[in-house]
Amino acid sequence: MIPTMRRPESLARALRSVFAQDGLADRPVSIVVVDNDPAATARSTVETLKADSPFPVVYRHEPRPGVATARNAGLSETDAPLIAFLDDDEAASKGWLTALLRAQEETKADAVFGPIAGRIPDERSWAAVYLQRFFGRRGPLSTGLIDHGYGCGNSLMVRHSALPGTAPFDASADQTGGEDDALFAALKARGGRFGWAHDAWVEEFAPPHRATMSYALSRAFAYGQGPSQTAAKARDWSGVFRWMLIGTAQAVVWGLGAMALTIAAHPRRADLMDKAARGLGKVLWTKSFEPKLYGVRELQRLDGVNPSAA
Results as ranks from 00 to 15, higher is better:
residue 117 A to K: 11
residue 120 I to H: 00
residue 120 I to M: 01
residue 122 D to F: 02
residue 122 D to A: 04
residue 122 D to Y: 04
residue 124 R to N: 10
residue 124 R to P: 01
residue 127 A to Q: 05
residue 127 A to P: 00
residue 131 L to C: 02
residue 133 R to Y: 15
residue 134 F to Y: 10
residue 135 F to T: 13
residue 135 F to C: 14
residue 136 G to L: 03
residue 136 G to W: 03
residue 137 R to F: 05
residue 137 R to C: 07
residue 138 R to I: 10
residue 139 G to N: 01
residue 139 G to C: 04
residue 140 P to W: 00
residue 142 S to M: 12
residue 142 S to D: 12
residue 143 T to R: 02
residue 143 T to I: 00
residue 144 G to D: 04
residue 145 L to G: 07
residue 146 I to V: 00
residue 146 I to D: 05
residue 147 D to W: 09
residue 148 H to M: 10
residue 149 G to S: 07
residue 150 Y to N: 13
residue 151 G to S: 11
residue 153 G to P: 01
residue 155 S to L: 00
residue 157 M to E: 14
residue 157 M to K: 11
residue 157 M to C: 07
residue 157 M to A: 10
residue 157 M to L: 12
residue 158 V to Q: 12
residue 160 H to F: 10
residue 161 S to C: 11
residue 162 A to D: 10
residue 162 A to E: 11
residue 162 A to K: 05
residue 162 A to C: 06
residue 165 G to C: 06
residue 166 T to N: 04
residue 167 A to F: 04
residue 167 A to Y: 08
residue 168 P to A: 04
residue 168 P to D: 06
residue 169 F to H: 01
residue 169 F to I: 07
residue 169 F to N: 05
residue 169 F to R: 01
residue 170 D to M: 01
residue 172 S to T: 05
residue 174 D to G: 04
residue 178 G to A: 02
residue 179 E to M: 11
residue 179 E to F: 02
residue 180 D to L: 08
residue 180 D to Y: 07
residue 181 D to F: 15
residue 182 A to Q: 07
residue 182 A to M: 15
residue 182 A to C: 15
residue 182 A to F: 12
residue 183 L to W: 01
residue 185 A to I: 10
residue 188 K to Y: 12
residue 189 A to W: 10
residue 190 R to N: 08
residue 191 G to D: 02
residue 191 G to E: 00
residue 192 G to L: 01
residue 192 G to A: 06
residue 193 R to T: 14
residue 194 F to R: 00
residue 194 F to C: 02
residue 194 F to Y: 06
residue 199 D to H: 14
residue 201 W to F: 10
residue 201 W to R: 02
residue 201 W to I: 04
residue 202 V to I: 10
residue 202 V to G: 00
residue 202 V to T: 12
residue 204 E to Y: 14
residue 204 E to N: 13
residue 205 F to E: 08
residue 205 F to Y: 13
residue 205 F to V: 13
residue 208 P to N: 00
residue 210 R to V: 09
residue 210 R to L: 07
residue 213 M to G: 03
residue 213 M to N: 00
residue 213 M to F: 09
residue 214 S to P: 05
residue 214 S to N: 03
residue 218 S to L: 06
residue 218 S to A: 09
residue 219 R to Q: 13
residue 219 R to W: 14
residue 219 R to Y: 14
residue 220 A to T: 08
residue 221 F to N: 03
residue 223 Y to F: 14
residue 223 Y to I: 12
residue 223 Y to A: 12
residue 224 G to T: 13
residue 229 Q to W: 15
residue 231 A to R: 03
residue 231 A to Q: 03
residue 232 A to G: 10
residue 233 K to L: 15
residue 234 A to M: 05
residue 235 R to W: 08
residue 235 R to D: 14
residue 237 W to Y: 13
residue 239 G to M: 01
residue 239 G to N: 09
residue 240 V to R: 06
residue 241 F to H: 15
residue 241 F to C: 12
residue 242 R to V: 14
residue 244 M to G: 11
residue 247 G to T: 13
residue 248 T to V: 13
residue 250 Q to H: 09
residue 250 Q to D: 08
residue 250 Q to G: 08
residue 251 A to D: 04
residue 253 V to K: 01
